[in-house]
């Protein structure tokens, strides 16, 4: 779908001063093959992908994932594996050294059961990394006060989780995310738990600036096809949001005239 032909002219998605045509971010974990990943990047038209850093495997030469991502796509390195702010900062510095820009998704997790982000450590890491010149996108449990701290710290966006990471449960935190959308003057990018294109559309209808998906794409039977479905759903949700989605009503309201035919004069 060419967004230039939409009946409502959308503003570009601006993140850290950079304009993006796509509001769909793709995570690169869990893909069966790197070719599936490359195809999914292409079919979705995503312009921002997340990657992670790890020790290299000394026993097996691995193909580098960077080779499968087109150069015009912005790399957003996550700090997965970090259990506190210090570790996240260290990972960010290492990533910067590789020369693929300074975009960092802060992800600090020290709970292995629920994999929930540690909001406090995330704020600390954001404060320091912003001062060091990083473009920081913090991944958090949605909370208004935390989001306000992240605004103060200079974050480029706030990335609240929709539900548990990798759970495909969708927008369990819908009301909290709505608060952030209403109150926070930064792009709200819904991350984690988005398991189907319909859920991505729902987040966009609410007014999210963008949506990130990974597991739902990487573990689908046809990753490249569902990646495109996600991108279309994000566009559909965005268009619906701009259109002003009508409110729910508690009573019926006929769509067709109920009088003036057959039974009445």
């Amino acid at each position: 779908m060419n967004t230039s032909t939409l009946p409502i002219r959308d503003t570009p998605f601006i993140l850290a001063g950079k304009a993006f045509a796509s509001r769909f971010l793709l995570g690169t974990g869990k893909f069966q093959s790197k070719q599936d990943l490359a195809n999914s990047v292409a079919t979705s038209g995503t312009e921002i992908v997340t990657v992670a850093l790890r020790r290299i495997d000394l026993d097996h030469h691995e193909e580098n994932i960077i080779e499968y991502i087109p150069q015009n796509v912005t790399l957003l390195t996550n700090t997965s594996g970090a259990r506190n702010a210090q570790e996240a900062i260290r990972i960010a510095r290492l990533a910067k050294e590789a020369g693929h820009g300074n975009w960092i998704k802060i992800e600090v997790i020290n709970d292995s059961k629920y994999l929930l982000p540690d909001n406090n450590e995330t704020i600390k890491a954001t404060e320091i990394l912003v001062k060091e010149g990083f473009i920081v996108l913090p991944y958090v449990s949605p909370d208004l006060y935390v989001a306000r701290e992240l605004v103060k710290a200079g974050a480029a966006a706030v990335m609240p989780l929709g539900s548990f990471i990798g759970s495909n449960q969708g927008l369990k935190t819908r009301e909290m995310i709505k608060v952030l959308i209403n109150e926070i003057d930064l792009p709200i990018i819904v991350d984690a738990g988005i398991g189907a294109p319909s859920q991505a559309a729902e987040a966009m209808e609410l007014g999210a600036a963008a949506v990130l998906a990974n597991t739902a794409v990487a573990t689908a039977a046809q990753p490249a096809a569902i990646a495109q479905a996600f991108a279309l759903a994000v566009q559909a949700g965005r268009l619906a949001h701009l259109s002003g989605v009508p409110q729910k009503r508690s009573l019926a309201d006929a769509s067709s005239p109920l009088t003036g035919f057959l039974y009445e004069n």
């Binding site: 974990g29 997340t50 990657v51 850093l53 790890r54 290299i56 960077i66 997965s80």
Partner: peptide, 28 residues
């Protein structure tokens, strides 16, 4: 300490050094 790749040819690895080599992998 991060060693810039442009300095790898000047950096000698000494006895007892702790070295980390990291690369990019898939992640969400």
């Amino acid at each position: 300490e991060i060693i810039k790749s442009s300095n790898w040819t000047q950096k000698t690895v000494a006895d007892g050094d702790t070295i980390e080599l990291v690369g990019f992998v898939g992640g969400g």
